[in-house]
Write a protein that binds this DNA or RNA. Structure first.
Lengths: 206, 206
DNA sequence: TGTTTTCTTGACCGATCGTTCAGGAACTGA
DNA sequence: TCAGTTCCTGAACGATCGGTCAAGAAAACA
């Protein structure tokens, strides 16, 4: 920081606040006026720091990736049993979903639904986060297969895709039915799914 | 239709058009101006017929329920094997997701993500549709259990919740990664999940 | 033809939207 | 102190928002 007036706020502090707002209300329904209120800076400072509303939104997604998703991924990459890691991920996700003061659902899921088919930048970011999650699931599945916890004849990529999709489904259900019993039922079956054998079931009537 | 000028448009025809728009852009990002363009009626007619934007949106959800979801549910309630019915549902869902000129994702999933935590009316409607889907899955699972296609020791409610959640996850993934290979991988694992035995896995480290 | 009823149109309304920028404030360095 | 740099504020801008309603049109009926 050289010559000039020092900034009065921490960029990441106000970005966290913006992230909460976007997470709660989505992009389109969030006005600059609301953001200004919640971030506790004025409009000019918002624009000077982040550029414009869309750029701020992207910064919020990136922040979510670094703060929230990173925790979920850390749970997956623990050098323990792949099976335990996956369970820990979903456990954490359920707890996250039921936290009282936290917005419902997941910023990435919400953004995929709201914007992925209309905004290239959002689609790119959302796709990157989902791909990252899938890759982490993939590593955990491979670990589990090596340890004999998951049947080795199963396609780890398909399992990783399934687990990623299940996490998104859980986020949506958490929004529509924020009840522990519902979410735990779902997680129970998802985790049990890793126990099944490889069966060409989906194709049997082709 | 008694005295007075006859209406020049069919309510359901213009409602279908509105549904396409909301499905594609969501609620907040859809302006009356855009709706007017797409529905091919003027603002006054839109308000006279549907009341206001929110009411039109609800009418569109109800229409989606009657036109699209009903087809999916019909696939589930076919008096055939419960297992086949579930497979047919997901097959149909993948085809729907990959149709070229159809909006990505699913209006219900999108609405849950966008509005369920902020708009009571939307939450109610979305919740009702999801509950309907879950009930249909439940019936199919029970049928499959009776026929010995699915292990009877499994909780049909948990399985129905899982399948409903999986359908939502698939809609989100279809938006982020609209590729057949991805969606079919997911469906393959979802369907294989019904093959697994009941194992108290999610609770083993309590 | 005139009256009544219902429908269609689109200009208009007040409010809000996202963005800009002039004026003033807080700092450094000469 | 002054000049330059950077930050903060919020009024103002042009555009758009959702909703209203007066005027005219299309019908049935007397």
């Amino acid at each position: 920081m050289g010559v000039g007036r020092p900034r009065e706020f921490e960029r990441d502090v106000v970005l966290d606040r913006a992230m909460q707002v976007f997470w709660s209300r989505g992009y389109e329904a969030t006005s600059i006026r609301h953001l200004v209120d919640r971030m506790r800076i004025q409009r000019g400072s918002l624009y000077d720091t982040f550029g414009d509303k869309r750029a701020l939104f992207f910064a919020a997604i990136d922040r979510y990736d670094r703060v929230v998703t990173a925790k979920l991924l850390a749970a997956l990459d623990e050098p323990a049993s792949g099976k335990d890691a996956i369970r820990r991920f979903f456990r954490f996700k359920v707890e996250l979903a039921l936290e009282p003061r936290r917005p419902r659902g997941c910023l990435v899921t919400n953004s995929a639904s709201e914007l992925a088919s209309r905004d290239r930048g959002a689609a790119t970011r959302v796709g990157a986060v989902l791909a990252k999650i899938e890759a982490a699931f993939h590593r955990a599945v491979v670990r589990a297969q090596k340890a004999g916890e998951v049947d080795r004849t199963r396609d780890p990529r398909a399992l990783a895709r399934f687990l990623t999709s299940s996490a998104q489904g859980l986020s949506v259900m958490a929004k529509a039915f924020p009840e522990r019993a519902v979410l735990e039922d779902i997680v129970g079956v998802v985790l049990a799914a890793l126990e099944s054998r490889r069966i060409p079931w989906a194709k049997s009537s082709t």
